[in-house]
Amino acid sequence: MSAVLNVQGVRKRFGGLEALAGCTFAVEEGSITSLIGPNGSGKTTLFNTVTGFVTPDEGEVSLRGEQIQALSPDRIYDRGLGRTFQQVRIFSRLTVLENVLVATSRSSVIKGLLARTRQSERDRAMDLLNFVNIARLADVPAGSLSFGQKKLLEIATILVGEPKVLLLDEPAGGVNPTMTAQIGEKIRELNQRGITFLVVEHNMEFVMGISHRVVVMARGKVIAEGSPDEVRRDPKVLEAYLGA
């Protein structure tokens, strides 16, 4: 097994606050890795750094050996690294189907101008909507979906570009237990099809249920990592959560 994503000594300051204080870890190809840590420990900031939304002050991020910390979000997406957002984000005035199709609009403006979305892409988008069980809502403006449906839509949207690595920021946050189970199921299924996952989640049952590895952050640093069992027993982890 080799590392597909490498985070090396990443630092990021916001004014007086060091959100990332030299963060280092790796995500193994084909794994489901969870990133946990108390509120404000820098998990979302780390996602933002890895996906090009925030430029790190120091350190490197590499995807399959290629350094990506200076690339823009769309370039990083093109290289097969997709993400979802902690606050669900969808294009609320586009229809559900259009939301998925946006991700097929490649960077080239000229090609995009000349091309309409092909039937094959529409079919694929519908397949993905079927996969997350919201195909019947394809023509509804996405803004009118329920919270859980929006989360599913976000996952469908991100999948259309066939990413190799997916970063999910609290996929089970704020959704009911049935939906949580459904989301966990989808993650496992996609993982079996070869997608690597890095998942931020506060729901410990969910985390321990799906992860192969768990990385624990506190105050912008990785303080522990290992299998779910190892992490569960690690006294440093408990201390980080209680002391936070």
């Binding site: 979000p73 984000r89 946006v102 960077s107 403006v109």
Partner: peptide, 16 residues
């Protein structure tokens, strides 16, 4: 249209 609704999200799904 995606940019109008959420520019950062659009970038996040590969729109330049």
């Amino acid at each position: 249209l995606a940019i109008r609704d959420d520019e950062d999200k659009a970038a996040g799904v590969g729109v330049d």
